[in-house]
Amino acid sequence: MSLSSRLISAACIAALRVLTGVRAQWLGCGPASQPRIYFANHSSHLDGVVIWSALPRTLRAHTRPVAARDYWDASPLRRFLASEVFGAVLIERKATGHARGQVLEPLFDALDRGDSLILFPEGTRGDGEAIAPFKSGLYHLARQRPAVELVPVYLDKLHRVLPKGAALPVPLLCGLRFGAPLMLADGECREPFLARARAAVEALRG
């Protein structure tokens, strides 16, 4: 990481602390360096960065938010932040045909390099009240990389800091809770697994 990226990352983390006052609560596990997928509810553009910045510094370098290319590739500033500062893995949300099968490739690559991922299985931001049904990406990742720990994460009140449609943020004390890791059970099918993963996030709502 270059010096300027490091300074910008420090500034982003400081700004996030001012806006969210967030403190990570490790309820079901502690920070660990093995490859993990942190999966969380999604209600604001800040979500990925909030989880990323709450990790210990040594883990941050190897933990990469998974983000939508259509948003984070849309302007030079966003592109710079996503690639140089947060090390985001950008994916196509609207892939069709043959490309659809390739969407998860960059995620497998990252996991195989030993990186962890931050993932929002709802696929899009919600209103902060209900958690939408999970998309199947998490299931495919769990099935093909069974050694990777799946850590449920609940983000509280982020939708009030930067709700859908708002350009400017409002400072609020947000919550960030890490639950106990899940594994895909032997022979577990897609729908029950996704429902179980979603329930694990829901259970952290408190």
Partner: peptide, 21 residues
């Protein structure tokens, strides 16, 4: 910031809160 956290506002208050802060 503490006060606003505990007094739930609706989406319609977002801009007013931005102006306040």
């Amino acid at each position: 910031r503490e006060f606003v956290t505990l007094t739930p506002a609706r989406r319609g208050d977002h801009e007013s809160l931005f102006w306040s802060f």
